[in-house]
Design a protein around this nucleic acid. Structure first.
Lengths: 235, 235
DNA sequence: TCAAAAGTGTTTGTGGTACACCCATGG
DNA sequence: CCATGGGTGTACCACAAACACTTTTGA
């Protein structure tokens, strides 16, 4: 009847768009169990930190990206704040051969330009495309699958998609991001109309030069962060 | 760096429709902390049970209602299986004055006829209307609020609502259930058209006599359990 | 002047919402 | 025959989906 000893970890599925692909940050395990296999970053919850703090700490340790506490107001101008959200808690006995370990899984979205440095230096962390993930330790394959499902789902009725883009972006870049994540192509005219009607982005007045005609640069509207009320908002 | 000792509990928000009202099952705490205050049922996760098993056990201990394992196929005919789903994991340090306790919260829906006996006998468990909840222990008020939000939300795009009704029911009963949970009135003709179009219920061929004209009895279609694809399905 | 990407409107179908009366039964 | 709750249809509007060409720039 009394309580048994269990360890609690926080694991975090970190998504980013890189090379026109949706990728996840994985770390290679140095020690048993599952030595040499890939895993999602995570670690034990410390005595005096909340679960959210633990997840933010893991994200910082693995990517160098800090999550500003929403309580402190918005980040410095131009900084896109990474998005973190609790995903699910996995606690089957036997999911960790060392004993009873329950993990609270989070998922995070980091904006494209920040993701370029993250995990690249020295360490044993690497970005892997979700299309072709390696064999993974523990039940981490299941956790990533679930995170991907949730990401796709939220894309349809909220504005999380913007969290994967740089502070300013073109509509074509935004559409490519959506197509990459959803794994399907979208109609350009319908996409643009819906996004603009939703009033979640605004023109910067700047243009981006490129191969063809220059494209208007847009930014995400801060006051549109709140999840959108009813219906699918985006394709 | 190594892991600290934390206790893990499972708490469960149990909803039922009683007296034309949405109610939650609460237990009165016999010992400190928060002695005498109301709390949602819960307890420590045991060594060899999964989180789902722990939640099902709590539900059974508090209400006497067993959750059939979906792996074992459908329940015996006529038995409406209570619905259980993981809600969120709460783990702020300081949420329990005795030490670090992380709780994995679940929410459950039990069908009306079963709810009548549950918690009524002797024990310190009582059904309380969500409209007027008493002061509650720990962060349980927050947990119930969140569960209610999730329930209302899911009602709009899935078929969970049926889990609160008896195995057969009239369309008016179903509509009243929706109205009770959502806290708003719905148009009768639109409600009926949408529910019937969705093909989640079917006629039983039986009628229920009452004050006025007898009403067709319907049952929930087993093969419609899956969550529904796009759009709001129900009012 | 050509390649490459940006940008732009209209039509058609479907689903949501608003709205008021007749029907079957028991007392 | 009347009170009570059960049951039904239509018109309008908003939004989703399908669909192809013109514009601007750099090479």
């Amino acid at each position: 009847m009394s309580h048994v000893s269990v360890a609690v970890t926080v694991d975090i599925v970190i998504f980013a768009l890189r090379d026109n692909d949706l990728q996840v940050l994985l770390v290679k395990r140095k020690y048993p169990p599952y030595q040499g296999l890939w895993a999602i970053p995570g670690g034990y919850v410390q005595a005096n930190e909340s679960l959210e703090d633990a997840a933010a700490r893991e994200l910082r340790e693995e990517t160098g990206i800090s999550v500003e506490n929403p309580a402190n107001g918005a980040a410095h101008p131009g900084a896109t704040v990474p998005y973190i959200e609790q995903l699910y808690t996995f606690g089957d006995p036997g999911r960790d051969p060392r004993g009873r370990v329950i993990t609270v899984a989070y998922f995070a979205l980091v904006p494209a330009p920040l993701a370029i440095q993250a995990g690249s230096d020295a360490s044993d962390a690497e970005w892997k495309p979700v299309r072709s993930l390696p064999r993974m330790a523990f039940d981490h394959a299941q956790i990533v699958r679930y995170a991907l499902k949730r990401l796709r789902y939220k894309l349809e009725y909220s504005a999380v998609g913007f969290q994967l883009l740089p502070p300013v972006f073109t509509l074509s870049e935004l559409q490519r991001a959506y197509e990459t994540i959803l794994g399907e192509t979208l109609d350009k005219r319908n996409f643009r109309r819906r996004i603009l009607q939703a009033q979640v982005i605004e023109e910067t007045g700047q243009y981006q030069a490129g191969e063809g005609r220059p494209a208007m640069l847009y930014r995400f509207r801060e006051d549109a962060v709140a999840e959108v009320k009813a219906r699918r908002l985006f394709p």
